[in-house]
Simulated scan of single mutants.
Amino acid sequence: MVRSTALVPRHYVDLGVRGPEDVIADPEGRVLTGVEDGRVLRLTGIADPSRTRVEVLAETGGRPLGLELLPDGALLVCDARRGLLRIDPAGGAPRVLADSVAGEPLRFCSNVVALSDGTVYFTVSSRRYPLERWIGDMAEHTGTGRLLRLAPGAERADVVLEGLQFANGLAPSGDESFLVIAETGARRLTRHWVAGPHAGRSEPFAEDLPGMPDNLWRDGDGRIWVALAGPRLPALDLLHRAAPAVRRTAARVALRAPYRPAGTAAVLAVDDTGRVVHHLLRRRSGFRMVTSGCVAGGLLVLGSLWERGVAVCEPPMGEG
């Protein structure tokens, strides 16, 4: 793990609504995100907050989380309530691509990527808890997260990998031979091979992270940006080693207790070997629960399930 350097905030873009959970950048440097009220937004001109313009691209009727921009301009959306959706560039209502797997409704779709052959992979964080009760899964440590696949032309998704600890962010390797999966509940990144001699095999990619990984985003320089939604909590690590009955009781308590995120903001960048190349950290941060990060227009943009806007930060030292 490389030594952390300062995460330097530049300005804040207020969206007037909570929860820009995932942020991604398009080729023009605009930022796309989904918010709590079901809208999918596009932010233009983020370098100057006085000139930032916010457009509504669609309303999902649910709760949009992870996003993936396709080469034809369409947008894939993991909606926590409605499943995997597609928003066409010409507009119109979002189209449902998958809302169940093996007859089971998708409770908590989280993040999505599309490979160059048209195969779509997406994660389900929990089969037991919905988004609004995510902290219950973190406490109970259910291991019910999944990686799903929608093959080109297929009408139904299939299960690729099960038993993940709160499967969250997803990103491909540069050659698309493997996927990197964030397991928030285990503070690790997992590699799942999808091509080559190891296809179908999974293994650790980066373990014992300094925080809880959330969304992932691959930039044009071969780095995968890893949002850390919260710092490592030794008490939570200890709880995860307790008996299932103890964890279930802790989950019930956690669901009744008021929640406030830790006052830190942090992101990592890793390369295709799992080596950490950047660890940006701000203690006593006014922007909390960083759930995503992307680079747009040479600036690092952070999203949050908790906040009512996005944070625009300086890129790592020596860049931009």
Rank of each mutant, 00 (worst) to 15 (best):
D137L: 01
A206M: 03
D271A: 00
A102H: 14
V56S: 11
R107N: 04
A206I: 02
F122K: 05
S116L: 08
T119R: 12
W225Y: 14
F205H: 04
P261W: 01
E132N: 09
T52N: 07
R39L: 11
A269W: 00
R39Y: 10
L70P: 03
Y12I: 07
R3T: 14
D208A: 15
E59Y: 14
G145M: 04
V277D: 07
S126F: 00
M1I: 14
R63K: 13
L65A: 15
G163A: 12
R3G: 15
D208P: 04
A167D: 09
E203P: 06
H192K: 08
V77Q: 06
A151W: 04
A151Q: 11
G230F: 05
L228H: 04
T44I: 12
S292A: 12
D272R: 01
L65C: 10
P152G: 11
V31W: 02
R283P: 11
S4T: 13
L280F: 07
L228K: 01
C78N: 06
P172F: 05
G34H: 03
A74N: 08
T273F: 00
E104A: 14
A266V: 09
G34W: 02
R283E: 15
R187P: 03
D158S: 15
V276C: 14
A74V: 04
V159N: 06
G38T: 07
E319T: 11
V56E: 14
H141W: 11
P244W: 06
V194K: 01
G174A: 15
E28T: 13
L239Y: 06
V160D: 05
G169E: 02
R146F: 13
L281T: 13
T291D: 09
A251R: 00
T52Y: 05
S177C: 14
E140V: 00
D208S: 12
P234Q: 15
R3N: 14
T142A: 13
L43R: 00
L147T: 05
D79W: 01
L280N: 05
G309T: 03
R39H: 10
D158K: 12
R95L: 15
L97M: 08
I224T: 11
R248W: 04
M212R: 13
V101K: 07
V13F: 08
A250G: 09
C294Q: 07
V31M: 06
D88G: 12
A206V: 02
A186M: 05
V180C: 11
L67A: 13
A265T: 03
A195F: 00
G320K: 07
T119N: 10
R256S: 12
R86T: 09
G185Y: 01
W134T: 10
A98W: 03
P89Q: 10
N168M: 06
L238Y: 14
N168G: 11
L76M: 10
A47D: 14
D72L: 05
H240V: 09
D99W: 08
L161C: 15
R188P: 02
L32R: 07
P20Q: 09
L32S: 15
R256M: 14
V301F: 07
D88R: 15
D117C: 09
G318C: 10
L299K: 13
A250L: 04
V270W: 00
V270K: 00
G185P: 01
R42W: 08
G222W: 02
S173Y: 06
E55C: 09
P27C: 08
V159Q: 06
T60W: 02
L170D: 06
S4W: 05
A80C: 09
L179D: 08
L41V: 08
D26L: 04
E21Y: 03
